[in-house]
């Protein structure tokens, strides 16, 4: 697996066979604190890459920088070979790099179907002058709606089609946000903690959806804390700590890496914390 994705030695910042996103020397400082300091990283095309790391490692900040939601102090990055540094966030999205948010951003007082429609591109009716005449955008709207309905069905939200997004549960909003991100057929989907606050049953279906993305040829980059799911679905894992990339590699190998265990998993990586507590309580007796 590793030699299919990386060229040469598997180490932090290693070259990939076919990178879709390449970032160089990206730094972001908040006052005296360096939140992100990434020297070089490449995201492999067509794979599911997990970005993991302890709280405050700079994962979300790095996401924000790459997608134009925040400005770095230094750094350049390219998406599909084209320079993306300094490009405003909406243009990043138009180039096929769509992100979701850690705190789900469903558009509460729009219906589920309108949320979906908003995810599409190239609707002439979204231009001010293009919107005046219905025939100008009606046919595109029909296409968009058909696609939205198809995606809603896939994500099992079709029963909620006409409901306000505010009426959805937390997990359903996560699904909606992911489905909405797929409306424009993105080349790279960036999911910021897609599993946070989602119950185990729904987690399973979210995992399936992420795997589906890969089989449809979409590249996925996601931030996650749940080691279990990282191990299950990712092809490649990148570990961040204190703003830097400290390790990367295939999931099974990364988990064994002492630098990762040290930085992230801690000394009790293989122990069930529940056991530890009971054990020490018994010792106390």
């Amino acid at each position: 697996m590793a030699n299919q994705i990386a060229i040469g030695a598997v180490e932090p910042g290693c070259k990939k066979v076919d990178p879709i996103l390449v970032a160089d020397n990206v730094t972001r400082q908040f006052g005296g604190l360096t939140a992100v300091n990434v020297e070089h990283v490449e995201i492999p095309r067509g794979q599911i890459t997990a970005l993991i790391g302890p709280n405050g490692a700079g994962k979300t900040t790095f996401f924000n920088l790459l997608t134009g939601f925040d400005k770095p102090n230094t750094g350049t990055w390219t998406f599909e070979g084209k320079d993306l540094a300094g490009v405003p966030s909406y243009k990043v999205a138009r180039r096929g790099m769509i992100r979701t948010f850690q705190l789900t951003k469903a558009l509460s007082l729009l219906t589920v179907i309108d949320n979906m429609r908003l995810g599409s591109q190239d609707q002439p009716g979204e231009g001010f002058f293009g919107s005046w005449l219905r025939f100008n955008w009606k046919s595109r709207e029909t296409q968009i709606t058909a696609k939205a309905d198809e995606l809603l069905k896939r994500f099992k939200l079709d029963a909620k089609r006409e409901d306000y997004a505010a009426a959805l549960s937390g997990g359903q909003r996560k699904l909606l946000e992911m489905a909405r991100a797929l409306m424009s057929d993105p080349k790279l989907v960036m999911l910021d903690e897609p599993m946070a606050g989602v119950n185990p049953a729904l987690t399973q279906s979210l995992l399936e959806h992420i795997k589906d993305l890969k089989s449809n040829g979409t590249t996925v980059l996601f931030v996650e804390h749940d080691m279990h799911m990282v191990r299950h679905i990712s092809d490649w894992v990148i570990v961040m700590a204190e703003g830097k990339i400290v390790a990367e590699g295939p999931p099974a190998e990364v988990m064994k890496n002492p630098a990762v265990i040290d930085a992230y998993l801690g000394a009790h990586a293989d122990t069930d914390l529940g056991d530890v507590e009971i054990g020490s309580a018994k010792e106390g007796n």
Binding site: Y90, A93, F101, L118, G127, F128, W137, A181
Partner: peptide, 23 residues
Amino acid sequence: SPWGRVLKGIREDEDAVRALGKN
């Protein structure tokens, strides 16, 4: 129109709309 839909989206959460490629 779809234009009005984008406006309502902005009213709800402009970052979400930005992330979907709208100026």
